[in-house]
Nucleic acid binder design. Sequence first.
DNA 1: CTCCGTTGTGAACGTTGTTCATGAGCTATG
DNA 2: CATAGCTCATGAACAACGTTCACAACGGAG
Lengths: 214, 214
Amino acid sequence: MTQIESKSHQALKNILLHSAISVVEKEGFAGLNVRKLASMAGCAIGMVYKIFENMDDLAIHVNAATLELIDSRMAQPMAATDPKEAIHELAERYIDFSRRNFHLWSMLFEHRMERDLPEWFHASIARNFRHVEQALAPWTHGDPQAAALHAKVVWAALHGICSLSISGKLDTVGAQSASILARHMLENYMAGLEANSEGGRSPGADGNSTLQKG
Amino acid sequence: MTQIESKSHQALKNILLHSAISVVEKEGFAGLNVRKLASMAGCAIGMVYKIFENMDDLAIHVNAATLELIDSRMAQPMAATDPKEAIHELAERYIDFSRRNFHLWSMLFEHRMERDLPEWFHASIARNFRHVEQALAPWTHGDPQAAALHAKVVWAALHGICSLSISGKLDTVGAQSASILARHMLENYMAGLEANSEGGRSPGADGNSTLQKG
DNA sequence: CTCCGTTGTGAACGTTGTTCATGAGCTATG
DNA sequence: CATAGCTCATGAACAACGTTCACAACGGAG
């Protein structure tokens, strides 16, 4: 039951993972297969299945590595000092990543998994959201629930813009269309947040009362 | 070159398409294959390739049918009279569709095509956006460019919320989480639109001046 | 009936993910 | 050293896939 993970086991796991990432970067997930992977890593086909449960399991690990990559980009110190510009900067980084690492990024969302994702994967997603929550802090008045909510809304919205824009399903032409759309979205969303909090009632606190049980 | 499309040809095309839709509805795109399709339609494997270029071509046609389905849902007359509530209603319909027709809907976005999509497909997408533009009309002051822009922003954002929510990548639990997030997004975005237009300067008109050539 | 273009067929090919009987390598023991 | 026993690695083999294409069946014209 309890497998002894030898050093060579870990080493091969790293080689396989990095080979897989390199293939996906260049050709997308469709270009990845066991035989190519095994030959790149210099091992037999069966060995891949000793280390990863199956191709889906490998895909999850590639996706996890991509999440770490995004996290490292977002964790960099901000150039902007203005809180609003900091949000835009964060969004710009995300858009930039999705363009530079198109295949890795789209694999994160397009390749639907069979079974549900493991716990550590969700934790990695949550870690990414922390940066958004922090950048939104000036608007959430220290309310962690509001921060979590707005971070989800803003980031999901940004993701949608990225996703449709990059796959050409909004017929916006021009390289920076995603940036422009994202800027509009953020600009208006934040303005809405400010307008509502000035009125004394924040939608983050009671906005869902209108659709409770609906 | 110019194929004569016999009646039986069209009839079989319909049968194949509807069989494909029925399979995708139940099992998703992964459950679809030529042999199953041919046996359902009562024809030979090769016949499928006489009618559709390949599986990708068939997928595009299934996706087009899904777009028409969404369009027909959105074209229904609104129950709400208040313009803001009408937007929420439209969003609710989209979310509802994505949940009821999960496999068809996710195939629209997750199955990336090899070559770029045909013209009539983009036209079908544009037709869907018309409803959003119309619902947004009260905020765009008759400016068609602003309407197109805001429709894209709002709908892409909504789509992102739907997409991440439905695939469990936001760890929001509860059936209506997408609804709640969408409502927050729309509420704040519209509030932002109103706040900015009251100030005399609309972000739809000059908001991108800050990132031009950025 | 014969001819010939059109329409329909499914065996066959190449590639895929996955498995598992087989063998190679190592350690402990007599 | 020889042998047994155990772990680890191998790649041929299998099933299922998309796709092709030589061929059969049809059906109207001569």
